[in-house]
Amino acid sequence: MKVSRVLAYTTRHLFLYKRSLPRLMEVFYWPVLDLLLWGFVSVYLGRHAGDVPGFVTFFIGALILWDILFRSQQGISVSFLEDMWSRNLLNIFVSPLSPAEYVSSLMLISIVKLLLTSTVMATLAWLFYSFDIFTLGFALIPLIANLVVMGWSVGIITMALILRFGQEAEILAWGVALFFQPVSAVFYPVEVLPGWVRTIALFVPSSHVFEGMRKVISNGGFPTEDLIWAFSLNAVYIASAALFFSWNFSVVKKKGLLAKVGE
């Protein structure tokens, strides 16, 4: 793995965001809209129907953290789509850039994108709702790290499926993370889920992250147990995603599909 090549390919996406207003809107528009809409809904509900202490804080915190997972997944899969749409994939895969370096560059760009988005969201949350994301303290770093890694796992698997099944699988890039939202217990505790869904949630890293977030907001401290669960599951999932991508890439090359992606 050559860092210089990873950085070189990351600049391709940085150039894109520098030049393209629609792409910049993708980074800022939806997250800000989400925050404003659901933030005000939660303020209203918190005033008139809320028995739940810290309702608004839970909700806004969950919104910002969920967006991190979502952007992290899209940072991989939508960036890959950009290359597919611009018929650039052949240029990439006949260059010395290895598939691992390519995926690493997409991971890097996803970090850049979510840093931009999160900074704007956190600032707006502070301005409009007096929500300070840093009340999560030191726990914020491992909570975010787990969401980023889970987003990468989902993004890498999505990218592998698009490589294999072409444009038919493109839809996955936009919404596959949402599939995990109900079992991630983003806006409610895991305990409200039916028993069998709770069992599924146990194996979803983000459910532990959001449980951990609520514990920190309610009682302070550090959600060690939740983070151990999340880190352990993420270690398994990111390794599985990498193996799946690698296996799938070799299948795509055997089937001669690499040159046809995007057709």
Binding site: S4, R5, L7, A8, Y9, T11, R12, F15, L16, R19, S20, R23, E82, D83, S86, R87, N88, L90, N91, V94, S95, P96, L97
Partner: peptide, 28 residues
């Protein structure tokens, strides 16, 4: 080695120089 085809392209939003710069860095 390198490759070119009339059936492939380069990222549309990037300028010509930016596109070439990305590949120049990829090839060191």
């Amino acid at each position: 080695v390198n490759f070119s085809s009339s059936y492939i392209s380069l990222p549309f939003s990037l300028t010509v120089r930016e596109n070439l710069m990305v590949f120049a860095r990829l090839y060191g």
